[in-house]
């Protein structure tokens, strides 16, 4: 049974990021759910709210013409703090909300029912809420219905997340990873932040497949991906780009930090004993490319990292090489 994780805000944000749904336009499945909730519960406003660090984003909202509000005034930010539904029968009488600008001003919220959108690993990433502009009660039956609709919202999010994962390794698929790289480029450009893209390739992988068979190759890929996932922070991303090549996106990381992280992963993979043929050992080569002003699309950034990866291979494998700083290669 899943354990709710109400106090792990970083983990919660990472779970939200994994769904890759922030800042995306309204979509039919979520619109259908909010329309039905509005209809069945007879409320003027209904929303699928996703609670980010500073904002709540509406993946779907009926009855209000807005896509976001500050988290500080969000009712749903209260809902995600527990496993239970949050019921406010009269916001003007509730000290938590009586001075809230959404109560005192437009849209003049007076009553609210929200249930958490909980990921299978126990993180409340947002809430499905029904809102009225008059005081009212919500019955247990109505809350049960709201809970069922909330489960359907999570089902939609989960379906998309799973389809973006490589089944063998648990890493993002190439498509999913490249999409994230694209978004990171926008963030780096907009906020001037530093991030690093790493490409890694398992050395002599063909020999593993040819010598021990494809199941052994699969075990190597799984073990290497697992070592990477264990060594990465929650906000970092791992993608399988194809065959034995993986990409790693290290967010809010400078060039030195990127090389250090890659070196840590290189050592972790070199230290693996894969459960094949009495303990197979493998190594990997890494190309490390910090974000650069010249990068405008994922292909640019990947090409930079790939060039460094090629240098690592040419330099003898089992090493990390940084783009534009090849002299600083860390040899094993």
């Amino acid at each position: 049974m899943r354990e709710p994780k109400f106090h792990d805000e970083e983990g919660r944000i990472a779970a939200l990021i994994r769904y890759d749904v922030l800042d995306t336009p309204p979509e039919a499945p979520f619109e259908k759910i909010t329309l039905l909730v509005k209809d069945v519960l007879q409320v003027p406003i209904c929303a699928v709210s996703l609670v980010d660090r500073e904002q709540q984003w509406f993946k779907s909202i009926q009855g209000l013409d807005t896509r976001e509000t500050p988290r500080s005034i969000s009712f749903c930010a209260h809902t995600i703090r527990t496993d239970e539904a949050l019921i406010v029968t009269d916001a003007l009488q509730d000290p938590r909300f009586s001075t809230n600008p959404l109560v005192l001003g437009e849209p003049h919220i007076r009553s609210y029912a929200g249930v958490p959108l909980q990921s299978p690993d126990g993180y409340n990433v947002g809430a499905l809420c029904a809102i009225d502009v008059v005081p009212r009660e919500f019955s247990d039956a109505q809350l049960g219905i709201l809970r069922s609709f909330a489960s359907l919202v999570v089902d939609e999010l989960e379906l998309r997340r799973i389809a973006e994962r490589d089944h063998l390794t648990g890493a993002l698929t190439r498509r999913g990873f490249v999409e994230q790289v694209k978004k990171e480029i926008s963030r780096c450009r907009r906020h001037g932040r530093e991030s690093v893209l790493v490409l890694l390739d398992i050395d002599h992988f063909k020999r593993v497949n040819d010598g021990h068979g494809h199941p052994a190759g699969d075990s190597v890929l799984k073990a290497a991906a697992s070592a990477c996932l264990e060594g990465l922070r929650e906000n970092d991303l791992l993608g399988r780009l194809g065959g034995e090549e993986f990409g790693i996106l290290l967010t809010e990381t400078d060039a030195g930090g990127g090389l250090e992280a890659a070196e840590k992963l290189r050592k972790a993979i070199a230290g693996l004993r894969v459960d094949v043929a009495g303990g197979l050992r493998v190594t990997a080569s890494f190309g490390v490319a910090p974000f650069a002003a010249s990068v405008s699309k994922p292909e640019d950034w990947i090409a930079r990292a790939d060039e460094a990866l090629y240098s690592a291979k040419r330099g003898g494998r089992n090493r990390c090489v940084a783009a534009n700083a090849l002299a600083d290669a860390i040899a094993a």
Partner: peptide, 26 residues
């Protein structure tokens, strides 16, 4: 297999919703 779990859960949640809507007299 990768999607069978989530698809089964969706069916269960729809069944729960139907039951809830009936109880509520919809």
């Amino acid at each position: 297999d990768e999607l069978s779990g989530v698809a089964t859960r969706h069916q269960q949640h729809v069944a729960e919703l139907v039951s809830g809507l009936r109880s509520f007299g919809v």
